[in-house]
Nucleic acid binder design. Structure first.
Length: 580
RNA sequence: CGGGGAGUAGCGCAGUCCGGUUAGCGCGCAGCGUUCGGGACGCUGAGGUCGGAGGUUCAAAUCCUCUCUCCCCGACCA
């Protein structure tokens, strides 16, 4: 491609309201342009990256037996009503009516459609297992898009779906995807880990996320460097330190004026926060009043709480609702309340003689003990894991890091097959729901994440595997310098002829402009043709990641560039740690 | 949805508080000339419903009301 005619110029500065690094670079390098909040056009240079990412995805999906197909982006609402998600999902799903006044939705994800297909196409155990996938647009009207391409509203996702006879088959499909995803992200040059995750609104029985580290990530991961434990903070566990055994003491009400927070209370009584109980009140989507209690030094993890309660959503209770069950905001405890579902963290069960609210303003109870002073309806792990807490596997201190979720795999089980009647007959003629899994990778987010991890002060450092071009070719000097221009033109033709992808800077610009743009766009090799080196019959080749250049005779340029590209490819492959 | 910030030429900004020539500057863009190994220089030029609507006023980028959009934090989120 000749840069003189490239659609989409580079920018010296990014728009001022763009803050995320990958967003700035992807705009400055001319990869994408914003259209609206969370909506982007992909320019030709960026599209080449996307296509390479998608090619890798297709290769690895095909390698595990995935069948590439295509499902629609507009769905009849009735299908979504069948699984209940039409009402379950809020305004983040775009809805409209067609000319016949039929309710329609924009594809939010494709479980419904693929399961609808499965119920028609799959009838027999002889047809299973199956993996199908597509790369298709999703629209999610996020409450707030952010981070450039990291969280957008319209995006392309590779989503695949597995259909199996039983749990064992699903496990096989799940593991296949796990390995395929490792290969995809490694080949794209990402640094990532796999963590346990919340199944969220997908439902199902298990989920793992592929998390690429970046300070701009939206997720917090808790890791143990000692044993390798890693989970998303949404579900991360930790070992609660056991208080020393002590006798239960008689409960006693004390006046504690103006102690509506745990810290104020602990300061007032001169005790550590771990000797207090913290009460938080929610209304569950099912209509239950949820009275959650954790030890005072811990925080509630709403995702864990929601999962423990099997509630689809939790909203904070109002002051009136709290009074309605006999509790008092700021001075609440489960002692004496009625009409509430009481769930306590393991830490509360195991800690004797805690200070808890007296359910009247200005008073707390000393020496409250679960089981003696109140009964919990549920004891569960509902406290949020934080950096420094003990690892649940080995007890060493946990570390927290930010990461971007680049892929997610789910065991759906029969959540959708039962709802939609996707069944097969076994060898005995008995009908069973198929076991399903769903597996997603966003290609645009993957592009942004690679930039987040690979850049320097001058621009992007693309891995060869997904770089827009292999080579940035620069002609140095005036376009009136016929000798240089004709050598550069010839080299461009020769490289292109030999299958090397070249971005040829043939603009009539000064060298500095071209060097800077080559660095910004970040193709792995830079080749410069100048009268200075031409005088020695040479051209210059420089790797984007190296400060040093090589000089080779013009006549050997193509083979030298070929050789260097092969070297880079070999190095990248070695870095993935993958075999073959 | 709550909190904060911003909309003036393709990009970056000044001007707005305190209303008053023809709305400016840098980069970029077009033409001519000089220059050519890390974002050159000179001259000339094109490019603007000052986000939109309504209002106040002799007069509005500037004041008032409403509204739209974008960004950031939070809530939210496969």
């Amino acid at each position: 491609m000749r840069m003189s005619h490239l659609f989409g110029r580079t920018l010296r500065a990014a728009p001022s309201d763009v803050e995320i690094l990958s967003h700035q670079l992807s705009i400055r390098a001319g990869l994408v342009r914003p259209l609206g909040s969370g909506i982007f056009s992909v320019l030709p240079t960026g599209w080449r990256v996307i296509q390479k990412i998608e090619k890798i995805i297709r290769e690895e999906m095909n390698a595990i037996g995935g069948q590439d197909m295509m499902m629609p982006v507009v769905h009849p609402a009735d299908l979504w009503r069948e699984t209940g998600r039409y009402d379950l999902i809020g305004p983040e799903m775009a809805r409209f009516k067609d000319r016949g006044d039929r309710d329609m939705v924009l594809a939010f994800t494709h479980e419904e459609v693929v399961t609808d297909l499965a119920r028609h196409e799959i009838n027999s155990y002889r047809q299973l297992p199956q993996i199908v996938y597509h790369l298709q647009t999703k629209f999610r009207d996020e409450p707030r898009s952010r981070g450039g391409l990291i969280r957008v509203r319209e995006f392309t996702m590779k989503d695949s779906y597995s259909f199996d006879l039983d749990e064992a088959g699903l496990e096989v499909a799940y593991q296949k995807h796990w390995r395929a995803y490792q290969r995809i992200f490694s080949r794209a040059g990402l640094y990532y880990i796999v963590v346990g995750a919340d199944v969220g609104m997908m439902g199902g029985t298990a989920s793992h996320e592929f998390m690429a580290f970046s300070p701009n990530g939206e997720d917090t991961i808790l890791l143990c460097d000692a044993c390798g434990y890693a989970e998303n903070q949404e579900v991360a566990r930790f070992t609660r330190d056991r208080p020393t055994a002590e006798q239960m003491l008689p409960a006693e009400e004390v006046e504690t004026p103006n102690t509506t927070t745990i810290q104020l209370l602990a300061d007032y009584l001169k005790i550590p926060t771990s000797r207090t109980a913290k009460a938080v009140f929610y209304m569950g989507a099912s209509g239950r009043f949820i009275f959650a209690v954790v030890r005072g030094d811990l925080g509630i993890n709403e995702t864990k709480l929601r999962n423990a309660l099997n509630e689809s959503a939790l909203t904070p209770a109002t002051v009136d609702q709290i009074r309605g069950i006999g509790a008092e905001a700021g001075y609440g405890s489960p002692v004496g309340v009625k009409g509430a579902f009481v769930v306590i963290d393991e830490s509360v069960r195991d800690s004797p003689n805690l200070v808890a609210g007296a359910n009247r303003p200005g008073y707390h109870l000393l020496n409250v003990n679960a089981g003696r002073d109140f009964e919990a309806d549920l004891v569960a792990d509902i406290a949020s894991a934080e950096a420094g807490y003990p690892c649940p596997e080995c007890g060493e201190s946990l570390r927290a890091d930010r990461a971007i979720e680049v892929g997610n795999i789910f065991k759906l089980g029969t959540r959708y097959s039962e709802a939609l009647g996707a069944t097969y007959l076994d060898a005995e003629g008995i009908e069973h729901p198929v076991l399903m899994g769903s597996y997603g990778i966003g290609s645009g987010r993957l592009l942004a994440t690679v930039i987040e991890q690979r850049y320097d002060e001058n621009g992007i450092l693309w891995p060869l595997s997904i770089a827009p071009y292999h080579v940035s070719l620069i002609a140095i000097g005036s376009n009136n310098d016929e000798e240089t221009m004709s050598a550069a033109n010839q080299l461009y033709a020769d490289l292109t002829q030999s299958g090397i992808e070249v971005l040829y800077d043939d603009r009539d610009d000064r060298p500095g402009v071209k060097f800077n743009d080559a660095d910004l766009i970040g193709n792995p090799l830079r080749v410069a043709v100048s009268s200075r080196n031409l005088a020695n019959g040479q051209i210059e080749i420089k790797r984007r990641t190296s400060p040093d250049a090589e000089f080779v005779p013009l006549g050997e340029a193509v083979s030298a560039i070929r050789r260097m590209l092969d070297d880079i490819a070999a190095e990248e492959w070695a870095a993935t740690g993958l075999d073959q």
